[in-house]
Design a binder for these strands. Sequence first.
DNA 1: CGCTCGGTTGATGCACATCAAAGGCTGTGG
DNA 2: CCACAGCCTTTGATGTGCATCAACCGAGCG
Lengths: 229, 229
Amino acid sequence: MTALDGAITECMGLSIFSGISRTGLKELFHGGQVVTSAHREHLFEVGDSASFFGVVLSGAYKLSKPSAVGEDVIVHFSTPGDVVAAFIIAMPNTVYPVTAIAMGPSRFLKLPRENYGTIWKSNLDLIFKIQNLLSTRMGHLQDEKVLMKAPLSQKVASLLMSLLENNPDGETTLRLPLTRKEIADSVGASVESVIRIMSEWSKQGIICTNEQHINLLKIEKLIEILREH
Amino acid sequence: MTALDGAITECMGLSIFSGISRTGLKELFHGGQVVTSAHREHLFEVGDSASFFGVVLSGAYKLSKPSAVGEDVIVHFSTPGDVVAAFIIAMPNTVYPVTAIAMGPSRFLKLPRENYGTIWKSNLDLIFKIQNLLSTRMGHLQDEKVLMKAPLSQKVASLLMSLLENNPDGETTLRLPLTRKEIADSVGASVESVIRIMSEWSKQGIICTNEQHINLLKIEKLIEILREH
DNA sequence: CGCTCGGTTGATGCACATCAAAGGCTGTGG
DNA sequence: CCACAGCCTTTGATGTGCATCAACCGAGCG
């Protein structure tokens, strides 16, 4: 229970729950529990019957789908404050369309699916905030599609810039610990190609990595790369 | 007014409005008007301030975004019964993120943005149906992303198969009139490459085109192509 | 001390894009 | 009625961005 109380406190700061009182959150989170995931631990797998949704509290999870070749494609990075699987839960009898895997130690507020149909659904304001969340996520997918024909460097630059949006102003080091492989899986390229591009950027001092944390030193340069051609 | 009445009748058959009475629809469509678009006519442009949303009545519209190169990328084909721009309208002060262009003569039920915030919003059931619509559309975008690394033939096959979903059972000729260029813009390839693949299929009797209407003669073959490698 | 994991580099090949040219078809204006 | 422009399709020749394969290094770890 104390973990849940802590989670409630954490959630009060999130924009998606703004305007909701502590007791309101207690209701929304009824029957919920905080789960902690180790690095690379699976929260749920594609094809599992969808029995819960929830909120990312700390760390991060990557949502990926297996491709025909067996290689996974990452469709979304879920960072703290992100609501996961809410849209799926809204539909009857569904399975998760993606696998959720922890990137580094992470914490997740796990809520029973029933909550959505009852308590969450009755909060119209919340429903619309979730719809907006879904809408912006779709916007990102569309933006990626637009870059389909663009050179790989632009895809990588675009990914890094979009991850920057989660950062507080001025902070240029991405919160998310990202391996080159994960970048490759996200933009649909091979690790080697991503490495070739990023080590070139490192040489030029545009970016700088340590311990999988990427620091975007010269954002103007990245923007320039996006405009190229 | 009579055109609007006709539109109401047409909409009564749509699953998204199921369970809503004629008078209910009259309310939802208050202030609406039926616009007819000629082939290639623009319904709205990317960047326009979003003043209306609506329902496709007949024909079809392609939703596309301009890429850096100037070439357009098609993000969605909207066919009859599809609700367009509802998610955008839900957010305050937004512009259209895509351009909508008629594919052949088409008809569109144009509704003032105010309706969404007032009448539509108060129908919880409708809101959730729209959310599901958004959710499945996002699912398609994700599926496309998974195919990023797949050979072009699979992307084209996947597109054709997904368009088949709109068809009544047994009907294998796509309702949507599609040019090779549109297919290319949708899967992120060049016209020539799409043509090379599809004319090979034509020779093999897998598909058959006339007047931009594509008939999928051997669906098993297409499924086989999707499973390959 | 072997193991896996993340990063890196070079050599080779292929699936596409790109460029070029041409023919049919439709609509439009002189 | 013809000329002309745009659009759609097609085919061939040529080039290239990136995947693939192969090998190697350092770091953490049981």
